[in-house]
Design a binder for these strands. Structure first.
Length: 601
DNA sequence: TGGCCCCCTG
DNA sequence: CAGGGGGCCA
């Protein structure tokens, strides 16, 4: 009755699929600023002394230089690194300077011999960085503590830099640097003593100005009061978030993580791909969501063949082998491991937040990969946001050289564990703490709309429960829920109108057999629908949707042909039929990143 | 009664 | 796409 022309391939874009930009796979931070700041991580030789250093050196005797060569090289390296951090990047470079700086911090914090930086290592706290910093601490606790301290210190630096950049952006005219002492002016209400509310002493009479540190001497004095207020608010929020992270990580997560270090740091080999796969499989076995049972109508569209292309949730990782590139999955999940040692989730997430705040993408930090994801056992209420880092990017036209990945593949990545050591907990705690409810979307975005439209290809009648499981980054409220429901209602409306129009058209054109009506990718109806739900055509519409559309068309055709449209409620039976044809939505749609990335495609 | 849906309108 | 009205149902 219904055509079974099934597309055995994936549902997600094949040609415009999910790809990971190559530049990110090795963890390279994109952009000039990144390069400018992240040189220690690159393959470049040890940085040469800067101009100032050379001047100094020229005052010394050659022999001294030679004898102190080693020392000088070391010093130059340190100075260069410090300069790279303290010197504000160009505004254009700012987009990535944070990411780059994270890299720098890694380099500094781990004190890895320069040569070893050339070959990225699988970063595992137990066997990697923690061991390499052994001279800094005798016990694992001390080691971890040292790392944590560095991490926290670095976060503070980043905060200051952000403040600085904000000030600079707001007032590019002010280039004055660092003179005079600081004087404390009235802090923001409710946070007396907040250091970010301090101000520097300037000749201006405006008391509401930038932060206190030398490098933070951005001047907002020339700004309109509204902008100043915004500036202060942003700074204040950042400071608050930073404080929360620091305090909470230390108080909540550290003791436990430290105990894990004690237990495991010596004997724990790096969990290799096998171990990871093992854990992955285990994770996949207990699928957390009891999805609504498939509502396929047996005998019509619910055949097994029809299921496959519609991206039904995988029963096992292998079940998707034919529908997406597992190679891509491996690539995406392994490459990151070379980049970020464990325990860096907090900076990663913070940078994500910052990137978002600043309107930049986060894919440059995607390289956190599976390491940014707490083990599923450790995921807390905010786990949805962690999924963000385990998913891949939906790309459209620009970067499509690489193999596409279906939502199923995204699903796999989303559930990759982070490992079983204490770092996972530390990381998870950091993630939860750094991802405050504030970062949950309290409103639906255009990205969410686009995602909802694509979801419509799979489900026409999603329940609010279902929607909640697929819009994990949304802080659901009654309003949000009804808005989403309304969206789908609107989608349906458009859908039924188009199908009805098409059915009437077919009738006018003399069609007699409803069964002969089929919606193909060439048909006008499909083009119309595709244009509406899949503008840009960067999503490969599942064949299943064509079947549903075909059946809808046939139902409408038959009803109109039989004159049922005289009945005011003649559409209701059709709605009832169609409402049973929903199929499961690929897990990839649960990825938080999905709705964000869809905007870019 | 609340939730959901459809329909109409802007 | 959102708002609002009306109907249906548990």
């Amino acid at each position: 009755m219904v055509g079974r022309r099934l597309d055995p391939t994936i549902l997600f874009p094949s040609s415009q699929g999910v790809t990971l930009p190559q530049e990110y796979e090795c963890g390279a931070s994109p952009g000039e600023g990144a390069q400018a700041l992240s040189f220690p991580r690159t393959c470049a030789p040890a940085p040469m002394p800067c101009a100032g250093d050379r001047d100094q050196l020229s005052d010394q005797h050659l022999w001294d230089q030679i004898s102190d060569q080693h020392l000088q090289a070391k010093r130059a390296r340190v100075e260069s690194i410090i300069q790279g951090i303290s010197l504000p990047p160009t505004p254009q470079a700012f987009s990535t300077s944070l990411e780059a700086a994270f890299w720098q911090e890694r380099e500094r914090g781990s004190e890895v011999p320069w040569e070893s930086k050339r070959k990225p290592r699988v970063p595992q706290q137990g066997s990697g960085a923690a061991k390499r910093v052994a001279p800094l601490g005798d016990s694992p606790h001390a080691e971890g503590c040292q790392q944590l301290k560095e991490q926290l210190c670095f976060l503070e630096q980043q905060l200051r830099r952000l403040q600085e950049k904000f000030s600079q952006v707001c007032d590019s005219a002010d280039t004055a640097q660092t003179q005079g002492g600081s004087k404390k002016v009235h802090p923001l209400p409710g946070n007396p003593g907040d250091r970010l509310d301090k101000d520097r002493a300037t000749a201006t009479s405006d008391p509401c100005k930038g932060p206190e540190k030398d490098e933070d001497r951005g001047d907002t004095g020339g700004l309109p009061s509204a902008a100043r207020a915004l500036s202060q608010t942003l700074k204040h929020e950042l400071a608050e978030a930073m404080s929360r992270v620091v305090d909470s990580v230390l108080q909540t997560a550290w003791p436990k993580a430290a105990s894990h270090f004690l237990q495991q740091h010596r004997r724990l080999p790096v969990p290799g791909p096998d171990a990871r796969r093992e854990h992955f499989a285990a994770t996949r076995c207990r699928k957390p969501l009891a999805k609504p049972s498939p509502r396929n109508t047996p005998g019509t569209l619910g055949s097994p063949e029809a299921e496959a292309p519609s991206g039904a949730p995988a029963k096992s990782p292998g079940s998707h082998a034919g529908s997406f590139s597992s190679k891509q999955v491996r690539k995406n999940s392994q490459a990151p491991s070379m980049c970020y040692p464990l325990g860096l989730a907090a900076p990663i997430q913070d940078s994500q937040l910052l990137s978002q705040l600043l309107g930049y993408g986060q894919h440059g930090l995607w390289s956190s990969g599976s390491h940014g994801i707490p083990s599923s056992l450790e995921r807390g209420p905010l786990e949805p946001l962690n999924l963000h880092w385990g998913t891949v990017k939906l790309r459209s036209s620009v970067m499509r050289q690489q193999q596409p990945l279906s939502p199923a593949g995204m699903e796999g990545l989303a559930l990759l564990p982070a490992g079983r050591d204490g770092c996972g907990e530390l990381r998870a705690a950091a993630c939860r703490l750094s991802l405050t409810p504030r970062q949950m979307q309290e409103a639906l975005t255009p990205g969410h709309l686009k995602k909802a439209k694509l979801m419509f290809f799979f489900t026409r009648y999603p329940s609010s429960t279902l929607l909640k499981t697929y819009f994990l980054d949304v802080q659901f409220s009654r309003c949000i829920t009804s808005q989403l429901i309304k969206w789908f209602s609107n989608f349906r409306e458009f859908y039924y109108i188009q199908v009805e129009k098409s059915a009437r058209q077919a009738l006018l054109e003399g069609a007699v057999d409803a069964g002969s009506l089929r919606v193909s990718r060439d048909s006008e109806l499909f083009r119309t629908l595709n244009m509406h739900y899949n503008k840009g055509n960067d999503f490969e519409v599942p064949g299943r949707f064509l079947e549903v559309a075909s059946l809808t068309l046939q139902e409408f055709f038959s009803a109109v042909k039989a004159g049922k449209d005289a009945d005011p409620s003649w559409k209701k039976p059709i709605y009832k039929i169609i409402s049973k044809l929903d199929s499961d939505i690929p897990e990839g749609f649960k990825a938080v990143r999905c709705s964000q990335e869809l905007l870019c495609s």
